[in-house]
């Protein structure tokens, strides 16, 4: 179908340039490009499946993810040695006899929450600060950007480790098994990148004629920022948000794997790998299965991000 559309438009182009293509808005064009990108569609399918599993986890998961069945611990998945498999645990069980399939499904919930909640915070704070700094300039810009520079000088993971490690024992660190602190930590580390991005965009836009025109018609600062500047910065913001999602998922998995992320018994893929590593050399599946899930979700979100970048800004295409 894609090729048909391409040849059709090519022929039109040759015969009658004025009929070359139906007019499409930037967004319509982006959707069209996304639909033609097979990697993006496959990635989208993976993300949708994971999202459905995560949402319906209480209905789909066969067992409570923290229910222990100690006599049946360390069962192998159904393709393993038949002597050590059990029909009720199709993907086996971990060293405490917890059902791995149920734990994997419930982990998807945490990963998606971690993927989307901090990114929303990053967007709200980063875009506001960047907009204010870029638009007002002078001392506002100076103050805000000095703060941004200092946080930017810290490597992300190092800063995350410090925040998580020090505040884990506090009240904040105990809310929802550490989930709330994790949201906050990722947002605190991440908003500076967004602020720099939006500021740069606003700086290049604010001297443009359309802003001058808006000002001439008597638009207020707020109106100029939200109705004129903001929509024009949206494309790079969307791309940045799209890459923020796998970044946050990776951060949670890494921290939980190091033992300073989400607190057990809350199941997350990182926690599962951390706990399963003790028995890894004899029973690898409790580690390999969540490792596979993380990789799959990371790949899917990264492909989505790549696709969005290519669709929204064709000039930046890598090929």
């Amino acid at each position: 179908m894609a090729t048909l559309a391409a040849t059709a438009s090519g022929r039109h182009h040759a015969d009658a340039p004025e009929l070359a293509r139906k007019q499409r808005s930037l967004w319509g064009d982006a959707v069209y490009r996304l639909k033609r990108n097979r990697a993006v569609m496959a990635a989208l399918a993976v993300v949708l499946v994971v999202a459905v599993l995560a949402t319906l986890a209480p209905l789909i998961a066969p067992y409570d993810p923290i229910r222990q069945d100690t006599p049946n611990s360390l069962m192998e998945p159904f393709w393993g040695n038949p002597k050590f498999t059990l029909a009720q645990y199709p993907l086996g069980s971990d060293q405490l006899g917890r059902d791995i399939l149920s734990r994997l499904i419930w982990s998807a919930r945490i990963s998606l929450l971690i993927g989307f909640v901090p990114v929303t915070l990053v967007f709200l704070v980063g875009a506001t600060v960047g907009m204010a700094a870029g638009f007002y300039g002078r001392w506002v810009d100076n103050c805000l950007m000095r703060i941004v520079d200092i946080i930017y000088a810290f490597p992300d993971l190092l800063f995350l480790i410090i925040i998580m490690a020090t505040l884990r024992g506090t009240f904040l660190g105990n809310l929802l098994g550490g989930l709330v602190l994790m949201f906050g930590a990722i947002a605190v580390v991440g908003w500076v990148g967004m602020a720099r991005l939006v500021r740069g965009q606003v700086l290049s836009l604010r001297e443009k004629e359309f802003v001058e025109a808006a000002r001439a018609t008597g638009a207020t600062d707020g109106r100029i920022m939200f109705r004129h500047l903001f929509p024009n910065t949206l494309a790079p913001i969307i791309v940045s948000v799209a890459f923020g999602v796998p970044g946050a998922i990776l951060a949670e998995a890494t921290l939980s794997f190091l033992g300073i992320g989400i607190k057990p018994p809350t199941p997350t893929w990182g926690v599962m790998i951390n706990e399963g590593f003790v028995v890894f050399s004899t029973t690898p599946w409790p580690v390999l299965l969540p490792a596979f899930c993380i990789s799959l979700v990371m790949l899917a979100f990264t492909f989505l991000g790549d696709g969005l970048r290519d669709a929204l800004d064709p000039r930046q295409r890598t090929k």
Partner: peptide
């Protein structure tokens, strides 16, 4: 760039070590 390095490390340990 996408697969976390600890996941790659685990695969390496499993394949070449175990």
């Amino acid at each position: 760039t996408t697969i976390p390095s600890f996941v790659i490390a685990i695969l390496f340990i499993y394949i070449f070590g175990v």
